[in-house]
């Protein structure tokens, strides 16, 4: 049952990315291109997504998930080097290609060989991340 729900969630997520134009790399790069022909669409996508999710977080109070034991714990208040370095590296890649992980998968069927190459490189990046994360974490702890 949880897997069925997950499939529906992935389907809605993918349809939302496709509808909103976030599988179009020029729209994402257009949002980041503040000194060029700036495209504010991404702000509407983010705003539209945050509204139902903000309501959902309110609904978690004093309740339990339908098919799970507990809701995710509140996020850690600490920021850390991993968060800052990781987000910066991610932003650089996002700007270069105009793709982030969700749209990269949602566009896999029509993204051609380049789209496939991006996903394979992203998976390789994810595979080499754990030792780098451990090292940055040690540096944060030592600092």
């Amino acid at each position: 049952m949880r897997s069925f729900v997950s499939f529906i969630v992935g389907a809605l997520f993918g349809l939302g990315l496709l509808t909103s134009g976030m599988t179009d790399t020029t729209k994402v790069q257009g949002w980041l291109d503040i000194f060029g022909n700036w495209d504010p669409t991404l702000a509407f996508v983010m705003g539209g997504a945050i509204i139902p999710m903000a309501i959902a977080w309110q609904l978690t109070r004093g309740r339990k998930p339908v098919l799970a034991a507990a809701f995710p714990a509140p996020p850690e208040p600490t920021l850390g080097r991993n968060l800052v370095v990781g987000s910066t590296l991610f932003g650089m890649g996002w700007g270069l290609a105009g793709l982030c992980p969700g749209p990269a998968l949602a566009s896999l069927s029509f993204g051609g060989i380049g789209g496939l190459l991006f996903v394979l490189a992203m998976i390789a990046g994810m595979a080499i991340a754990p030792p780098i994360r451990a090292r940055l974490h040690e540096q944060t702890a030592a600092a």
């Binding site: 949880r2 729900v5 997950s6 529906i8 969630v9 992935g10 389907a11 809605l12 997520f13 349809l15 939302g16 990315l17 496709l18 509808t19 909103s20 134009g21 976030m22 504010p40 669409t41 991404l42 702000a43 509407f44 996508v45 983010m46 705003g47 539209g48 997504a49 945050i50 509204i51 139902p52 999710m53 309501i55 959902a56 977080w57 609904l59 978690t60 339990k64 998930p65 339908v66 098919l67 799970a68 034991a69 507990a70 809701f71 995710p72 982030c100 992980p101 969700g102 998968l105």
Partner: peptide
């Protein structure tokens, strides 16, 4: 912008279902 907003709401509904039913954060 309208399509962006509509698509964004779909993404948000997907994330809300994943949270409220499966108890998970929808992070790709």
């Amino acid at each position: 912008w309208i399509m962006g907003l509509a698509g964004g709401v779909l993404i948000g509904i997907a994330a809300a279902i994943y949270l409220l039913v499966n108890g998970k954060v929808m992070g790709a």
